[in-house]
Amino acid sequence: MSEHVTATYRVNSEGRTIAHPAHHTLLEVLREACGLTGTKHGCELGECGTCTVLIDGEPQLSCLVLAREVEGAAIDTVEGLEGRDLHPLQKTFADLGAAQCGYCTPGILMAAKALIERKPTPTRADVCEALSGNLCRCTGYIKIIEAVEWAAALCRGESGARPADASLYGVCKEKPHG
């Protein structure tokens, strides 16, 4: 039985030639061989979505993909999101506090990026559907959804006002405790 295979991967537009056991998943190769630990290791069975990366622009679960099968494909991870500045998604997630523990965030950012690129003006239903494979056990999702909508507006070149404060409890103009 062959111990290792050698393959060349295109990760965040950079070629990397790596020797790894044939049965390693893309997630293992990204984290262990490439040192790209932004992509998280969650349930390992395709249930949580935190290992989401883009394969030729499509969001997929890196824990269920054998690395060998994406040789030659364009693989994008959260590390490649930032250009000269933060990506609008990173900016809006940070500004709105759309994370608590943050473990699900890399996967959500990648799924959201694919959505915005495919559909620059997503409806709220589109956002919910696109993120339906990404679990977040802290936030309650509202901030995440608003951050994606806001980032979409910024990507369209609109100034995009910050969503109303305290939206979790409806639009609240006055601070409850003065």
């Binding site: 395709g46 979505g49 989401t52 499509e58 969001p59 997929q60 679960l61 269920l64 993909v65 799924a111 559907e129 696109a130 339906s132 494979g133 990404n134």
Partner: peptide
């Protein structure tokens, strides 16, 4: 079926 992430694969 599944989620968008599952359906893509």
């Amino acid at each position: 079926t599944g989620t968008p992430l599952i359906r893509n694969r």
